[in-house]
Design a protein around this nucleic acid. Structure first.
Length: 412
DNA sequence: TCTGGGGTCCTAGGACCC
DNA sequence: TCTGGGGTCCTAGGACCC
């Protein structure tokens, strides 16, 4: 016996920008862009406010490009602590409505209101108004019989929309949409499906296409897309409240490609410091520690090591990741005439996987360095790349760099 | 216009064991 | 002597999401 459910998906509109505007209401009418400050202009738009969007500015667009669309944009450095605190307020508010709340990410939640006695649309309206009045946070809400449809519905009207998606209306509202708009179809899968002549979500729902889809995507993935396109999704709203962390990582993309080992190691120390900090603060330890490298040619590798006993110790993590770096990077192996250098590093990252709660009581950890705040971390990273003495080492930039840069420019 | 940072989940292959 | 097959752990990588 299956009773039908009613699920809300609540999606904060341009959340990072909305938090900044909530803190600073005079930004309301201004084109706000959240992005990292980066003198070499590799940075991209993380979130744009609706005013900024009216100029055509979009998430993942380069900041440089955003400037061309609107020279008055206000760039704000992301403040994750602030966004986490607003996310927590959002969650606490929803708990006053019902306990059946699942935070799906920092800025979206699923709420199971199947048991609600009353008008669900009026409830959604109240939630939307309360969040706007109490916290100045705009949101869009989707109402549907399952999580997938609720998610698709909340996407249909932004900002401040409330959309009901009923199963019998799929042909009208869901199926005409381009398959690229389907949650779960990304920029790799979309072209594959299109190469089969499929264009819309309706095409994915059509049983005639399922065999083809299976050939292209594999049985499991194809079936799940087909089912959801038909409005079938039995996954439950997980309101256990457990936030089990699976992994913690920290990475840095350099503002130029790096072939100097010293710079890589100094940066590595800062990243390790951050990861160890985050683990210790949450009283967690990891069984797997790894290093991520992205070379100048965009080849990416992840190498990791599993431990018999989990750790959150800074010097342990450094030793492991340093060894991996040594195996996968050799200083001096760069070709001055080749921009697509396979031994120049664009990004370096540290990750901790298979995380468990630490059995020990939190205590003062022995750290190689003092724990850095986010701001200090940024400053240290800047110094490293500038070849200035830092807490983490003394970086020297040798002549080769300038030769490399010069040849770099000539290639264009 | 050369493409961030933090996550999740899934898969495939090799090692190892029985 | 001519070599099966299942289960599980580990590692690496791909795809997706916000």
């Amino acid at each position: 016996m299956k009773t039908s459910r009613i699920i809300l998906h609540i999606d904060m509109n341009c959340f990072f920008a909305s938090c900044e505007i909530a803190e600073n209401p005079e930004l309301l009418k201004k084109p706000v862009v959240i992005a990292h400050d980066d003198p070499f202009q590799r940075s991209i738009v993380l979130t744009a406010s609706y005013v900024a969007r009216s100029y055509g500015i979009k998430t993942t667009m380069q900041v440089r490009e955003a400037f061309q669309l609107c020279k008055d944009i206000i760039i704000i450095e992301p403040d994750m602590d602030l966004y986490v605190s607003y996310s927590e307020k959002f969650y606490q508010y929803l708990l006053t409505i019902t306990k059946k709340v699942e935070m799906a990410s920092i800025d979206e939640a699923y709420v199971d209101v199947s048991d609600y006695q009353g008008n669900v649309v009026a409830l959604a309206d109240k939630i939307q108004n309360d969040l706007l009045k109490e916290y100045r946070l705009p949101c869009s809400i989707g109402i549907a019989p399952n999580k997938f449809l609720a998610k698709m519905a909340s996407d249909m009207k932004k900002p401040l929309g409330i959309t009901i998606l009923r199963k019998r209306e799929l042909n009208q509202y869901l199926w005409p949409l381009s398959l690229e708009e389907m949650h779960g179809v990304g920029k790799k899968t979309a072209p594959k499906l299109q190469s089969l002549g499929l264009k819309t979500i309706g095409d994915l729902a059509n049983p005639k296409n399922l065999a083809l889809m299976k050939q292209k995507l594999g049985n499991i993935y194809a079936t799940s897309l087909h089912q959801r396109a038909n409005g079938i999704d039995d996954s439950e709203v997980d309101y256990s409240g457990k936030v089990e962390v699976g992994s913690i990582s920290n990475s840095h993309t350099f503002d130029r490609n790096i072939y100097e080992e010293r710079i890589l190691k100094d940066t590595l120390k800062i990243l390790v410091n951050t990861v160890a900090n985050r683990l210790q603060k949450k009283n967690l330890k990891a069984y797997t520690i790894g290093l991520q490298l992205k070379y100048a040619n965009f080849r990416q590798i992840n190498r990791s090591q599993s431990l018999e006993t989990p750790t959150n110790d800074e010097s342990d993590i450094y030793k492991i990741t340093e060894a991996i770096l040594d195996e996968n990077f050799e200083e001096g192996l760069y070709d001055i005439n080749n921009r697509r250098d396979s031994n120049c590093i664009r990004l370096i990252g540290v990750f901790a996987n298979r995380i468990v709660e630490s059995k020990e009581q939190p205590h003062q950890q022995i750290t190689i360095f003092d724990n850095l705040t986010e701001l200090e971390k940024k400053e240290e990273l800047k110094k490293i790349i500038d070849g200035v003495k830092t807490k983490f080492g003394e970086t020297t930039i040798n002549q080769g760099y300038y030769e490399y840069q010069n040849s770099d420019q000539k290639t264009e």
